[in-house]
Computed example of a mutant assay.
Amino acid sequence: MEETFIDVADGDIVENIAVRKIRPNPFQPRRIFNEEALEELSQSIKEHGILQPIILRKTGNFYEIVAGERRFRATKKALIPEIPAVVRNYNDREMMELATLENLQREDLTPIEEAESYRKLMDALNMTQEVLAERLGKSRSYIANHVRLLTLPEDIQKMVDRGELSMGHGRALIGIKRKNIIPIVAKKVIDQQMNVRQLESYVHALNKDVSRVTKKKSVKNLYLDEAAAELRDYLGTSVSIKSSKNKGKIEIDFFSDEDLERIINLLKERGE
């Protein structure tokens, strides 16, 4: 049976609540529930019943789960019509904090689910990473490393969620300077079964190439970039300047005949 962060107190009244009137916690940080584990819990509930009531709050004619969603899902799977529960009054902020803290007591959250839990707590309670780390008994770097995973593209976060990439892989991918190639590199990691150390070396080599090209380009085209920016500000439209050896071209965007006429007049004024 799962451990629960919220204890049932001596004064609590345990009621049997119809399963059909119960809704999942809208602030539940967990998205992935292991079906095999749920099936095992469901069989246990059929044989032994529910050993610990779930915690609910009343919302209109229904109830929302504060703690015990795995027990609720397993009871529903067992086709049992009622579940023992304690009904308490919680506001949305308390609901989210309690649901998050309950899940953080367990060790099977995915790194992304854990990261989202930390971010939600910090946002809702207006606390820093340092304060949250102290409250949870973890280091600030531990919190920060998880939260940084949320800067990954959504598709990559799903790969971490599914276990196709580890948290270490995710952290290494964050370090890629050319963000648009992260999905390509992630696919390469999976296809070639790269471990974290191999990926870190690969990312280091990628970034070294990018730095070299960027440095060369910035020295060569500094004047052209400044000139394009000046024209862009003056003309109020996109301007690009391309050069090759001793020649080049200027490209100016316009979007209608009137816009073209406006740009021509501005160039004439500049020439005068």
Rank of each mutant, 00 (worst) to 15 (best):
R212W: 15
K179W: 05
R140S: 15
R162A: 06
Q129F: 11
Q198C: 12
K138D: 09
K220I: 14
A133L: 07
I143L: 04
I181F: 06
G163Y: 08
M167Y: 12
L224Q: 08
G163N: 08
E134G: 14
I190P: 04
A144W: 00
T151N: 15
V203Q: 02
A227C: 15
I190C: 05
S201I: 07
K217M: 13
N126G: 09
R162F: 06
Q198A: 14
N221P: 04
A172G: 00
V210W: 10
R197Y: 07
A228C: 03
V210G: 04
R140M: 10
Q129T: 07
R197N: 10
L136Y: 04
R171G: 06
A133M: 06
V210K: 02
H204M: 15
L173C: 12
Q193V: 15
E200N: 09
T128S: 10
G137S: 05
V160W: 02
K217L: 07
A133N: 08
L199W: 02
K158E: 06
R178Y: 15
D155F: 09
A186F: 04
A172L: 01
I181M: 08
S166H: 11
R140L: 13
L125W: 11
V147Y: 06
L222C: 02
I181N: 01
G163I: 03
H204Y: 15
R162S: 08
G168P: 00
Q157P: 00
Y142D: 04
K187E: 04
L136G: 11
Q198F: 08
I174P: 10
D191L: 14
D225R: 14
E130P: 12
Q157N: 04
G170P: 02
R197T: 07
T128K: 05
D155K: 13
L132V: 04
R135D: 03
I176L: 02
D155N: 06
D161N: 15
K188A: 13
M159D: 14
E200Q: 13
T128N: 10
E226V: 14
